[in-house]
């Protein structure tokens, strides 16, 4: 057994242990913290699968932004439920039945997954064959923004719908207001300092990730998520505030990504071979154009989703 294998097995054990912690921890907040750690470990697994783009996305969105969303929720729930005591587990027989079911599912899945052909069927050669047409070097960006761009565009619409859904949970009197907590000058200097030091660095890294995403691992999702994280840091430090949900600029940025995507896609009918096709030779610039707007939309959508529905009227 090589060192790498030992390392892999150790990593697998660690991932499963932390995952089990998030399920079995007594305290919800502790479970959430476990989930953040779990996300970090999972990105290591993704690197071991040679899926660096996914590792980046998992680190940024799966662990980073989702983690912050859950930490915030767990913190607020803890404050709201002063009494507690409502986390009694269901009866032993149900738990036993659930455990049996879950073990069964796991075993069946593991069996089936191991039976999958190796080397398996793949679209990698197909993807490689068309890569030149797109002018890109990163095949994953080519899948996301060219071969299956329709999926990606629709997924941006999912984000927009999520924003509408989250906003719809506002109290009526706060409609038109803003989410988040108003803060005065921060007494705590550490956060303010971090909020001044990190974002310039983060913005640089975020933009870098989008830019290199055309040829190297990276792209609009990962870069956008880093930018989102930076904006959220400055909000947490009280340096910036969530805009009003009725702000025209905010809405413009929210829909810009999918709207530009749809516009370029439909323009393909006139200028290329069909909808969501790119004119020969213009694929790469158009893809970068779309990605720029997508990055912007993601950078704003993620914090808006984390911030939740509007909770106060901004100017009154």
């Amino acid at each position: 057994m090589s060192i790498l294998q030992i390392l892999d097995i150790g990593l697998a054990g660690l991932v499963l242990a932390v995952a089990a912690w998030t399920v079995f921890a007594r305290d919800a907040f502790a479970a959430v913290v476990g989930f953040v750690a779990y996300g970090l470990l999972l990105s290591l697994v993704w690197v071991r699968l040679f899926a660096v783009d996914v590792a980046l996305t998992e680190a940024a969105i799966g662990s980073g932004v989702t983690g912050v969303l859950l930490i915030g929720a767990a913190g607020r729930l803890r404050k709201l439920e002063a009494s507690g005591g409502d986390d009694e587990l269901p009866g032993a027989s149900l738990r036993l039945f659930a455990a049996a079911l879950c073990i069964f599912v796991t075993l069946v899945l593991a069996g089936v997954v191991l039976s999958l052909p190796d080397p398996g069927p793949t679209l990698a050669p197909e993807a490689a064959r068309h890569l030149a047409e797109t002018g890109l070097g990163n095949p994953i960006t080519a899948v996301l923004l060219s071969y299956r761009s329709f999926d990606t565009m629709l997924e941006k619409v999912v984000l927009v719908l999520a924003v509408v859904g989250v906003w719809s949970l506002a109290a009526d009197q706060y409609w038109g207001g803003a989410a988040g907590n108003p803060r005065g000058a921060e007494p705590d200097g550490t956060r303010a300092l971090l909020a001044q030091v990190l974002p310039p660095l983060g913005i640089l890294i975020g933009i870098h990730m989008v830019w290199v995403g055309a040829d190297e691992p990276g792209g609009a999702f990962q870069g956008g998520a880093i930018l989102a994280a930076m904006w959220m840091i400055t909000m947490m430090a009280g340096l910036t505030e969530m805009p009003s949900i009725r702000s025209r600029l905010l809405r413009l940025v929210l829909v810009a990504g999918p709207a530009v995507f749809v516009a370029v896609g439909v323009a393909g009918v006139a200028f290329a071979s069909g909808v969501f096709a790119y004119p020969t030779g213009f694929a790469k610039p158009l893809i970068l154009f779309i990605e720029a707007f997508m990055t912007l939309s993601i950078a704003v959508t993620l914090p808006v989703l984390v911030a939740g529905p509007p909770k106060r009227l901004r100017q009154q």
Partner: peptide, 13 residues
Amino acid sequence: VYVIGGFNPPLGI
């Protein structure tokens, strides 16, 4: 049938 983006399945949609 409409093939989106001119990429035939299985690569395209």
